[in-house]
């Protein structure tokens, strides 16, 4: 680590950034990816697995076309984020960490998106939807389902 008195930040200390990059570009981190990073950086696979399971950000499985993140912060909880989840269960048939059978939706919990004043919120493919209700959530999901059906017909 020490080189002419200046700390060189490389290798192991860059591993989180590498994993974040893969997670962002590929949507998840595959077993093969983990193995190749392990060989490349000389970090035991078990340690890498420990890392990716420690941090909430990383996915170890593929996600649906739309990832719905429901905020589980206090303000959202108080303002009934449970209703958002109920709507998603009813409209897409999934609970947290599940992907719908048509491969369209994946539901995830997220720890506070920092939009507490607009609670309860959800994030769908990086866009935040504010002051969500059961009805609004259902509408959103049906709209996306319809769009997907329309596309399928065109093909």
């Amino acid at each position: 680590m020490e080189k002419e008195g200046k700390t060189v930040i490389a290798g192991e200390s860059r591993v989180l950034e590498m994993l974040q990059e893969i997670n962002k570009n590929e949507g998840y981190i595959s077993r093969e990816r983990l193995s190749s990073i392990s060989r490349e950086l000389g970090i035991p696979l078990s340690l890498l697995y420990g890392l990716v399971t420690f941090y909430n950000q990383f996915n170890l499985a593929t996600s649906g076309r739309y990832t719905i993140e429901v905020c589980e912060g206090t303000a959202c909880h108080i303002n009934k984020s449970s209703e958002i989840k109920r709507a998603i269960k009813d409209a897409a048939g999934i609970s947290v960490d599940e992907t719908s059978s048509d491969g369209l939706f994946t539901l995830r919990d997220v720890r506070c998106l920092g939009a507490c004043a607009l609670a309860p919120v959800l994030r769908l493919n990086k866009k935040i939807y504010s002051k969500m209700t059961y009805e609004k959530t259902k509408e959103l999901i049906f709209k996306l389902k319809k769009e997907a059906e329309g596309e399928a017909k065109l093909k």
Binding site: E72, G73, C112, A115, C116, A117
Partner: peptide, 8 residues
């Protein structure tokens, strides 16, 4: 790393 829910 403002992780406290309810603070933004």
């Amino acid at each position: 790393d403002e992780g406290d829910p309810g603070a933004f």
